[in-house]
């Protein structure tokens, strides 16, 4: 046994370093933002029914700068920020930029959503997240939550809470530069 002693010691200490380091590292870098996807990752794929009665997939928007906004009519900051998104949408699409906004509604019925769209004259894409499945998939816990996705399909930023036009503008400008 004697001659293997050094080897045993090294093997065990390396094992401790690896496993222990992993455990401690996990505790050290535990994210406090719950299950939200990380910046730099690709957001989870989805397929949802749109206001236009068509299926929309995340992959359909590949190559475009994308804003994904989770909202509901029952959430006042969502209602307040909607016109700001509409103005941004008009601004960038009129300039011919490869840019899309997707509003993902959190489980409300079409009557409610359609009325809201008409009331605010929204022209960007509205998708129905029936049963809030995609919300759970994205780890969204409070509304509104907005994802900014670069044309290469990775997340540039995640914003939790209501946004002003300036907030949106700053980020979209950066999105389009990338």
């Amino acid at each position: 046994m004697g001659k293997y002693r050094k080897t045993t010691q090294i093997v065990i200490l390396i094992g401790v370093l690896l496993l222990g380091g992993y455990a401690i590292g996990k505790a050290l870098f535990a994210s406090d933002d719950g299950g939200l996807p990380k910046i730099g990752e690709k957001p989870p794929e989805f397929a949802l029914l749109g206001e236009d009665q068509e299926a929309h997939k995340l992959s359909d928007y590949e190559g475009k700068a994308l804003v994904i906004n989770f909202w509901g009519t029952f959430c006042p900051p969502c209602v307040i920020e909607t016109p700001e998104f509409q103005r941004q949408y008009e601004k960038w699409t009129s300039m011919g930029k490869p840019f899309e906004i997707i509003g993902i509604n959190l489980g409300e019925d079409s009557l409610t959503v359609r009325n809201f769209v008409q009331q605010y004259g929204l022209t960007y894409e509205m998708l129905y997240d029936k049963g809030r499945k995609i919300m759970a998939k994205y780890g969204v816990e409070s509304f509104p939550t907005t994802f900014f996705v670069k044309p290469d399909g990775t997340i540039m930023d995640i914003f939790v809470g209501g946004m002003t036009e300036e907030d949106i503008d700053k980020r979209v400008t950066k999105l389009l530069q990338s």
Partner: peptide, 26 residues
């Protein structure tokens, strides 16, 4: 119980379990 230092304590106890036992049982 989720802090890095508490985890470190547990890891150290685990290391001590392995090393102490090995050093004595053989």
């Amino acid at each position: 119980y989720e802090t890095w230092w508490f985890t470190t304590l547990i890891v150290m106890i685990a290391t001590s379990l392995v090393v102490c036992s090995l050093d004595r049982v053989l």
